[in-house]
Structures are given as C-alpha cells and as structure tokens.
Design a protein around this nucleic acid. Structure first.
Lengths: 190, 190
DNA sequence: ATAAAAATGTGATTTAGATCACTTTTAGCT
DNA sequence: AGCTAAAAGTGATCTAAATCACATTTTTAT
C-alpha cells in the first residue's frame, strides 16, 4: 500500500530531486488535515500558522471589503499551495478567508518548519524559490489582465485557460475573481 | 576604496549571511551596466537574457497593448530586481519593455548563472526564495487593490505608501500604473 | 419528494471613469 | 534666454459596467 505522502514527494521532485534520506527528514514536518465543503481553512482576524498543500479538493481564498463584498484572490485545487501568505510570512493576523468549495484534503507546514527544511535541504529552498517565482509571474499576468482587458475579455480568456474551473465553480464566484458583477458576467455569452 | 559590489553583498546579507568564500564565488557571476535616461534595458520581442539589480536610478517596466497604450507593471529603483521575469524564466521572447526614467546603474545575472549560484550556495537559493515570496505578496496586494478600491482610493493609497515615487515620476505614468486615465487622475486632489 | 436556499438570468437605471478636445504650465535643450 | 516638447489641467460627452429589482432555474438538505 502506497504512502499517502507519495504525491507530495512527487510534487517536490518535479523541480529538484531528493534522496530518500532528505525525504525522510522533510516528511515528518508535514501534517494532514481534511475539511468538508463550506468549512474554513483560514479566517481573517486570526493567526495564520500554516501554509497548505492541497492533496485533492478545491478552495477559494478571498477578502471581504468594508461593504461585505467578497473578492476572490485565488482558486486553489489539487497540487496548489494556499495560505494567507502575507499573514503567514509575517506571523500577523490574517485578512484573507480560505474555505472549501468541495471536500478537501491538505498537507500543512508551519513557518518555522518551512525555514527549517529550507535550510537543511537546499533542494527544498530551490523548490520554493521556483514555485514563488511562478506564482509571481502568474500574478503579474493577472495584474496586466486587469489593467489591459475588458471584463468580457478576461472572462473569455479564463474560459479558454481554465475551462474545468468554470464547470466546478458557481459563476458568481468566477465574477468575483474577475472583478465583474455577477449580473454583468451573466450577460456575456460563453 | 570600497568594492562596487559591496551594496549587492549587503543586499543579499540582509536576509541570509554569507561567508567570504561564498561571496567570492557569487560575485563574478554579476556584471555591471549603466544606462542613461530614456534608454532601454529590455525590449518586447527580444530575448531576455538577464535579470537586473538596480544599484541606483529608476526604471519602469510596462506592456504596450494592441492600441499602443502603455500599462505599467512596476516602477523599480535602488535595490529592486527587475526583468521580464516570465520571458527570462522560460527563455522566450519578451512582452515587456523596461526603460530608464533616470540615469541608472545595474548589476545583471543570467538565468544559467542564477541557477548555478543557487545550487552552489544554499543561502542564495533562500535569498531568492524569500525575495520572490515578498514580490508575490506585494502583487497580491496590488490585485486586491484593483479588485476592491476605486481609482481615487488607489491613488491616495499610493501617495501615502510611496510619496517619494509621486515626486520622481510624471503623473501620467502614475496613472498608467494605477489603471486610470491621466485626465481622471488629474482631477483627484492630492 | 418537497421545501428552502443558492444560483442564474434579465430589464431598467445609474455612475465611475474613459475619451475627446483644447488650454496652460513646466521641464529640457542648444 | 528662448524654443520646443512633454506634462498637466479642465470642460463636455460617452460608455462599460455597477447597481437595483425581480423572475426563473438549479441545488441542497430533510
């Protein structure tokens, strides 16, 4: 029977390979958690002690503004990392909610343990370096899309780029992610 | 007389300290370049062979859309890293222009050399890991500001957050960075 | 199976901000 | 200092998208 951490090790090794000794050191720093649809992984106002890797499921990370309106920062699914990165990194109260759109399973890691394994195993430092860099590049694209494209173009682009997400997620959440009202999005034809 | 790389070493050591041996290995991978105001560091359509660290000066990184309109992704000044990160990372033709708003000096590094020093010196991997992470966090804030705030609020926020930038840069570029027309920005009172 | 709750669709109206057109001010250059 | 070009201000008009209001459809829970 296969170790449940297998998929996580594989994920790390997609970028930098690890020896069995290195993995045996890394693995115990991760813990397992499972949540059902609608349950919260992270809540604004509270400490954010972990960053999470999604084994399977789907979550949304979002901010709620002063008018109570929800703005989606990220949809995260299988093999994605998710947290309130700012609060986690600076160990301060969060401003982001993360909750499950589907039943989900996670591995999670504390900041202290992340630093520990990054310093002990250079391949892990390099892994997170490259992952962060990819995240940065993707966010730059999102900023550009918000600056240059119309709401409808952003929607059409998302439909071609992540067609599966459109199926898995209510349109009003897609609207919130794109920065459009759900009424306006409903008038676009897909 | 002080080594011109001193500021760069100091910049690395703000996050993880280095031995003299490590620095002696790292330093020769960086090269020096100087440009005058209005000169290009990077041009869309061309290969992006380097990432740049700004010793002093100020540049803008921007995309030009199909209507010829300029959208500013980043202002980068002393101690900032700048490149067309996507094109650099994937070694493909760029889509971003970077040019100087002031005479500027840079150290630059190739992708190959970056990988080389990251693998040889774990502190460098950790340095770029943390830097990328900070960049990611800042971009998340920018995305949120575009989703949640009005144009005027974004402007007022920038004025309080980076008052020096407002002085150093024409308002029409600030407008482009914020995703507002220069006419609309001109009607905000500062 | 049925009730309640979400999600979606659609018309009518409003609005933040874009665009256009032109003037005034400021900064660079020889 | 004087000339040129870029930057900034301002009125008038237009428009993409928000908001409001309500109907319809689809999910979810019991």
């Amino acid at each position: 029977m296969e170790n449940k951490f297998h998929s996580l090790r594989q994920h790390f090794e997609e970028l930098y390979s690890l020896t069995d000794e290195e993995w045996d050191f890394i693995e115990p720093h991760f813990h397992f958690k499972t949540l059902k649809k609608h349950q919260f992984l992270i809540q604004a106002g509270q400490a954010v002690n972990f960053e999470y890797w999604i084994i399977n499921g789907l979550v949304k990370a979002y901010h709620i503004d002063d008018k109570g309106k929800e703005h989606i920062l990220q949809f995260a699914m299988e093999k994605y990392w998710v947290s309130d990165h700012c609060a986690f990194q600076h160990q301060e109260p969060g401003t982001i909610f993360v909750d499950c759109l589907e039943d989900s399973e996670f591995f999670y890691l504390s900041l202290e343990d992340r630093e520990k394994i990054c310093l002990a195993v250079p391949a892990v430092a390099n892994f997170f370096r490259v992952k962060s860099n990819h995240g940065y590049i993707n966010l730059q694209k999102r900023v550009l899309s918000l600056l240059t494209m119309t709401a409808e173009d952003r929607y059409q682009y998302l439909v071609t780029k992540l067609p599966a997400l459109i199926q898995r997620v209510p349109k009003k959440l897609i609207a919130s992610y794109l920065g459009v009202s759900r009424e306006t999005l409903s008038r676009f034809n897909s």
